[in-house]
Design a protein around this nucleic acid. Structure first.
Lengths: 158, 158
DNA sequence: TACCTTCGTTAGTGTCACGAACGTTTGGGC
DNA sequence: GCCCAAACGTTCGTGACACTAACGAAGGTA
C-alpha cells in the first residue's frame, strides 16, 4: 500500500515569490536553450540591443543600460569582440573608458538572436491569451519599477 | 560634456523573461532578508508547510511536494532536526525511507516563518491593487502549470 | 597640490538548480 | 526462492548567476 503522492500544497503554490521563482526558471531555460544552440548567451543579446538602441557607449554605460555588472561585462565584451560583433577602442576624450561600437556583423548577430529570443518568449507565453500576456508584462513592469534603488546609487555602477 | 546616462532600452525592458528574472530576484531578496534575520531559510518554510498540510512523509515525498531536490533536502532536514522542528526516524515499514514528522516546536516555527513570508509578499505586491495581485498570481500559475514535465518523470525524484 | 570619483579589470564569494554515483532496501516477474 | 529494476538517503560536484572587493589608471575639482 504505497501512499498516493501528495501534490504541492495549495498554501505553497499560492505564494507569489515562489511562483515568480518558478516562472523565472522556466523562462531562463527556454531562452538559454535556444541561445546555447547558437553558442550565444543571454547577456550578449542584452548588450547588442543596448548598443543598437542607444548607440556606442563605454562599458560602464552598457552596464547601466543592461543591468549586467561591469565586472561581468568584461567577459561578455571579450566574446562579442572575438565574434567580430563589436569594436572596442580606448576613448580619446577620456582615456579611462573604452568606446564600444556595434558593427555590421554585430547587427546581423542581433537580428538572429532577436528571432531566437522572440521564439522563446512566444513559447513561454503560449498558455496565455494576448490580453493576458500584456497584462502580465504590465504587472511585472510595475512591480520591478517599484522595487529598485530609488536613486541610481551613490557611486560605483553595477 | 558628459553624455546623459541612457536608461535601459524599451526593447529590453519589454522582454517577459527579463522581467520575470528581475521580479524573481527582488522577491527572493525580500523573502531571504526577512528569513535570514531569523536564521531561517526559504526551504525550511516549504518543508514545514508540506508537513503541516499533508502530514508526515519520507524525504523523497517532501522533495516532490516542495520541489526541493532530494540531494538538497538532506541539509534542510538536518537543520530542521537540529532546531528541534522535526523528528526523523527510519520507517519500520520500508527501511529505505525516513519518516519525517512535524512536532510542536516545528509547528510554532512554521507560524513564525509564515508571518515573515506573508510580510514579504505584502511588501513585494505593495505597488499592485488587490485585483492586480490576484491577476498576477493567476497568470503565473497558468504559466508554471503549463511548463512542467508532463508526467512526473520516468523515475528518480528531484 | 590633494582628494575623491569613475573606469576597466581581476579575483573571489555565496546561493541555487541540478546531476552522478554509491550502497541499501524493496517489490515484481519468473 | 532468485534476479533485476527501481526507489531511497546521502555525498560530492558542477555551472550559472548576482554581487563585492580591490587595484591601477585617469579625470574633475578645490
Amino acid at each position: 500500500m504505497s501512499s498516493t503522492p501528495e501534490p504541492t500544497p495549495a498554501r505553497l503554490r499560492a505564494i507569489p515569490s515562489r511562483l515568480l521563482a518558478g516562472a523565472a526558471i522556466v523562462a531562463d531555460r527556454l531562452v538559454g536553450e535556444r541561445l546555447a544552440a547558437e553558442g550565444a548567451h543571454k547577456w550578449h543579446f542584452a548588450v547588442l540591443v543596448a548598443l543598437a538602441e542607444a548607440g556606442a557607449a563605454s562599458q560602464a554605460e552598457l552596464s547601466r543600460r543592461t543591468g549586467i555588472y561591469r565586472s561581468d561585462m568584461v567577459a561578455v565584451l571579450n566574446e562579442l569582440a572575438d565574434g567580430g560583433c563589436i569594436r572596442r577602442e580606448p576613448d580619446p576624450a577620456d582615456r579611462r573608458r573604452n568606446v564600444i561600437t556595434l558593427n555590421p556583423t554585430g547587427r546581423r548577430r542581433l537580428e538572429r538572436l532577436d528571432a531566437l529570443i522572440a521564439d522563446a518568449q512566444r513559447e513561454l507565453l503560449a498558455p496565455l491569451t494576448p490580453g493576458q500576456q500584456d497584462s502580465l508584462v504590465r504587472l511585472l513592469t510595475v512591480l520591478t519599477e517599484h522595487h529598485r534603488p530609488p536613486h541610481p546609487r551613490p557611486h560605483d555602477a553595477r
